[in-house]
């Protein structure tokens, strides 16, 4: 358990670091994927195998592909990038440097700092303040949180069989237990979520459609950019 947790939480943090530092959006998405796989491992170590598999299927499978789709057909440069301001990804070429072979050779060398976002001080301050506050709250939790309570009666751990000769025990967090919870405990919420997803699908299709007759917002608009970048 502990080994799984340690490894997968490290993977999770690694993916998170990739996500928030990489300038290239596709690399950042890769970091998000790594973080999702890591947190699936965390779920596994917390005796939630069904959630872990659902995490991989939904997040790492469906959501990542959807993100990749939209990333691939939008231009992920910002407006500053396109104006060629210094520090932007597609900055305007410096012609004096471009004709100096030594400088070109120097510029062509791989510099990892080119691929990493500059830290944003205000955002970092807010996030670190939040982290400090929440870790203080976690530190102040009562002693009941120092150790996991044992699994409830009638359940068996998914990874290790606890009791000797434990014949017919439901796996805690397994498919059987979770589906019983859904369909015996909360059937109404389950149905409401199906309605929600239906509405979301309808809305997404409607929003992403192009050339709706008579609705001006759905036509393609190509902005004349030449006037901005010519001078």
């Amino acid at each position: 358990m502990e080994v799984i947790f340690v490894i997968s939480s490290l993977v999770c943090v690694l993916g998170t670091v990739i996500l928030i530092t990489q300038r290239n959006a596709v690399y950042a998405l890769l970091g998000l994927l790594i973080a999702f796989f890591g947190s699936a491992g965390v779920f596994l170590s917390l005796n939630a195998p069904f959630i872990a598999v659902a995490q991989i299927l939904i997040y790492a499978g469906a959501l990542a592909v959807m993100f990749l789709f939209v990333l691939m057909f939008t231009d992920t440069r910002t407006r500053l990038d396109r104006l060629g301001l210094p520090g932007a990804v597609g900055a305007r070429p410096n012609w004096k440097r471009a004709f100096d072979p030594k400088a070109v050779e120097k510029a062509m060398k791989f510099n990892p700092l080119d691929h990493i976002l500059l830290p944003q001080p205000l955002a970092a301050v807010i996030a670190v303040a939040f982290l400090l506050c929440s870790s203080f709250a976690i530190y102040k939790l009562p002693a009941a949180y120092n150790e996991f309570k044992p699994l409830p009666d009638g359940y068996d751990s998914i990874l290790f069989t606890s009791g000797a000769g434990a014949g017919r025990l439901m796996k805690y967090g397994g498919t059987e237990a979770v589906s019983k919870t859904i369909f015996e405990g909360f059937p109404l919420a389950f149905e409401v979520v199906s309605l929600l997803i239906f509405a979301a699908v309808l809305g997404a299709v409607l929003l992403a459609r192009r050339h709706l007759a008579g609705i001006p917002g759905t036509q393609d608009v190509v902005q004349p950019e030449s006037s901005e970048s010519s001078h």
Binding site: M1, E2, T16, I20, L71, T78, L80, A127, V128, I138
Partner: peptide
Amino acid sequence: LEPKTVLFLAAVLFSAGMYGVLSRRNMIM
């Protein structure tokens, strides 16, 4: 394995996500 450790991991991930939300300019990010 302690609950506090896992909760701390969750807090770290949440703050990192918060930093990402606050620092990025691209809506997809």
